[in-house]
Amino acid sequence: MNAGLPELTPGMLVAGAVTAAAASLWLLLPRGTESRLARWLGLVLGAAAISGFIVTGRRLGGLGEEAVFLTVSLVAVVSGAATIVTRSPVYSAIWFALALSGVAGVLLVLGAQFLGVATIVVYAGAILVMFLFVLMLAQPSGLASYDRVSNEPLLSAVAGAVLLGLLSLSIGRMSADPTCCAVPAKAAAVSDAGAAATAVAADPLAADQVARLGGELFGRHLLAVEVAGVLLLVALIGAIAVVARGEAALEDDRRFFEGGVRR
C-alpha cells in the first residue's frame, strides 16, 4: 500500500458505493428535463455502486453458488431500481414483475421453495395483473406531467442512500461480532430421538419442506391464520363499500377536489 494514501477499507468502499448510488438515482429519476448525458452518467454511476457492493459482499464458498446468488440478486436490484426511475407506469409495473422474479430466485437460493413459487404466483400473477388493469383503466394517453417530475428527487435519493449505507455497514459488522448471530446448537445438543425429530421438523432445509411449513402454519400459527382470513374478508367488504357509495357522493367529492371545500 502507498504510504500517502489511506488503506481502502470496506467501510470506505460502502460509503463510496452509496454515494454513487444516490447520485445515480438522482440523475435517473424523472426531474422534468430529459438529457441523454444524465441518463448515461446515471447508468455508469449505478454500475459503479453495484460493483462496489459486489466487491464488499462476502464470498459464499463456491463459484457456482456465487454465480447463482449474484445473478438473481442483480436481477432483483437492477429491476427494482428501474421500477422507480421509469417514467411510464406501465413499464414500471413490468420492471417490477422482473424484480419479483429476481426476489423469487433469492428466496429459492435461501431454501424457501414454497415462498419462491408463491411470490411468482401471488405477486406477479395476481397483484401485479390487478395493478396493470387499474393502469389501463386510469392512465391517460401520453406521459402525464406528474410522471415526468418527482418530489424532491435529490433529498429522497440521499435519504435512501444513507439508510442503505447504515444498514450495510451494520450488517458488515455482524461477522466481526461472534455473539450477534450465533445459532443455538439445538441439533448438536440433542441426544434422544424425540428431540432429534423436533429439530428435523423445525429445519427448513430438510426433506418435505412444504408439508412441514403447512404443519407449522396451521399448528402453531392457527389463530394468526384465522385473523388473516378475517382481514381478507374485511378488505373485500371495505373495497366494495368504498366503490358502492353512489353518484351523489361522487358529485360531492368532485366539488371537494375542485374547490377544496366540503359541503
Binding site: L25, L29, P30, F53, A76, V77, G80, A81, T83, I84, P89, S92, A93, A99, V103, F131, V134, L135, A138, A144, Y146, D147, V149, S150, N151, E152, P153, L155, S156, A157, A159, G160, A161, L163, L164, L167, S168, I171
Partner: peptide
C-alpha cells in the same frame, strides 16, 4: 436492504399513485 431503500426512495419521490 437495497430493495427496501429503493422502495423508500420511490415512495418518497414519485408522484404517480400506482
Amino acid at each position: 436492504a437495497m430493495l427496501f431503500a429503493l422502495g423508500l426512495v420511490g415512495i418518497l419521490t414519485r408522484r404517480n399513485l400506482i
